[in-house]
Design a protein around this nucleic acid. Sequence first.
DNA 1: CTGTTAGCGCCTTCAT
DNA 2: ATGAAGGCGCTAACAG
Lengths: 333, 333
Amino acid sequence: MQKITIRDVAKSAGVSISTVSRVLNGRENVKEKVREAVNKAVEDVGYSPNALARSLRSQSTKTIGLIVNNILNPIYADIAQGAEDTARQYGFQLFLCNSGANKEQEAMYLNSLWEKKIEGLLIAPTGFNETRINDFFYANVPVVQVDRKSDNLQTDVVVTNNKKGAEQLVESIIERGYKNIAAIVGSPTVTTGVDRLSGYFSALSNYNMEAHFNHIKIGNFAESTGYEAMNELLKTDPLPDAVFAGNNFMAKGALKSIKEHNLSIPQDIGFAMFDNPDWSDMHNPPITCVQQPNYKVGIVAAELVFRRLKEQEKEWVPITETLENKIIIKDSV
Amino acid sequence: MQKITIRDVAKSAGVSISTVSRVLNGRENVKEKVREAVNKAVEDVGYSPNALARSLRSQSTKTIGLIVNNILNPIYADIAQGAEDTARQYGFQLFLCNSGANKEQEAMYLNSLWEKKIEGLLIAPTGFNETRINDFFYANVPVVQVDRKSDNLQTDVVVTNNKKGAEQLVESIIERGYKNIAAIVGSPTVTTGVDRLSGYFSALSNYNMEAHFNHIKIGNFAESTGYEAMNELLKTDPLPDAVFAGNNFMAKGALKSIKEHNLSIPQDIGFAMFDNPDWSDMHNPPITCVQQPNYKVGIVAAELVFRRLKEQEKEWVPITETLENKIIIKDSV
DNA sequence: CTGTTAGCGCCTTCAT
DNA sequence: ATGAAGGCGCTAACAG
């Protein structure tokens, strides 16, 4: 670790350490000549401040944390980018952590971020560490849930309109004449699971249709569960003539199964999905889908943190921001 | 920020703060009874240590940094995952930063990581902040370049065998009878640009073929440059009958152009690329490619850091680890 | 305008 | 086995 401290600068410039500190922090009450001398000394000795000492003393780290569910999921990369760009704008840094949808790992990162004294937290919660998350909240550290929401948390939330997105998507399937539309959705323990399922039901109900009981498959958002679900669906009677997949990974698995069964889309079976990963246009045919404003989710969530930071004294009512999605019609239905 | 300190624990347990510190750090010389009392007090008052103070005092942060080039590129997500998993194993934390291939942003993160006193650095360098990177090196902070290597840096390196990968890939194109093979590669200022180009030339030379001068296009790894390069290629005379794309993004752009020109792969034009993104199997036809061991790159790089940390006293010779790639033959050539 | 001083929270000799 | 005291590097009163 570095050895050069503010003392060395002071000595080199022939002033006291407090004067150096003043210059470093851009205080006004320093004679211009002295300021220059200090700046020169900083260059000369190659000084750069120790953030640990500075933060310890000033009780401020200028750092916020983001815990995502799965960094391999491109939607979180987008969210991270949005949050990071916003943080930078406010002179803050983003500490990006990946829980891997694992509750122990999430707990570990929550602890670590706590000990590192972050001043704001963005999190796509696994749903198992509510107590720990609330600690931040009670300590007046703004918390914003992103992408998904856990019911037991009274924090700000930034999500997209999952229900409406799914509803509109499924309606667009219906409007193309499909009669037996199956759904492969994620676990209903998180909003991205339950809301998209609920949108699916709404769409059917809007058209006076009913879901066939074994045409609804619950996965865990992972590719393998999409694959297995689709295999199951292709054994049912009646067969579904279209499928709604609840996220990009499960869609990928389902498409693999469809391909293995030599079914062609959209003739043999229609297909549509939540998320618009880059492969969706490469696929033949391109997949009709719901595009979420992920980058914007990151921005809005980060801005919410900074807003809370600024208004800390005011009374506090949790806000939920719901961003709208866009249905993109392609050729798979 | 938190208010409960080691003092509160000491008071609650009726001991001195040094005793609390001893218990916290698992020192042996503490009476069993006292240890229990302290642990109970920790629970009672809800104490958790302040990492800033601890690190400042102990001169150790147990943190390493990773600066990637572009978090939206799935290869870096994989590398990050590998590095993170390894760091966790060693009881370290990973500070993940995204330079966005921007030199100012890279400089900013280098500064910030320096000030935060990381104990090791993994970086996919932009190639413009050598001086700053060397500072770490001189301060005995192990530095490992990952994925790409900048010539002016005397650090450890973990890369894949870009040249051999490209060479074998292009050979597999040649062996399928293509005669005019074009290349779209990234900037030769980084190894992932120059080595893959060099592999392309080797392959041709191995078969006594020559590259047509206007069949070599230099992009910057971004999708748009792949698209434009392909548009250019499709205006040349003679036309190329196959294309080698130097990474996933440029491949995507090139494929877009090919599609717009209504050319079919592999009949009208053969296609192969570096990287094996998830869309490569969704594409029709699936794209023959080079699969890099990205996750392993992350692991190996992180382990190198910890090895250096352990052997700090020993004399030091930079190591370059070159991991082998795998050619995956699909249906695009 | 500038220097002296007192901590931020913690770990670690040094006594006892 | 335990407590007192000093200091990691820095900022922010408080004097002058």
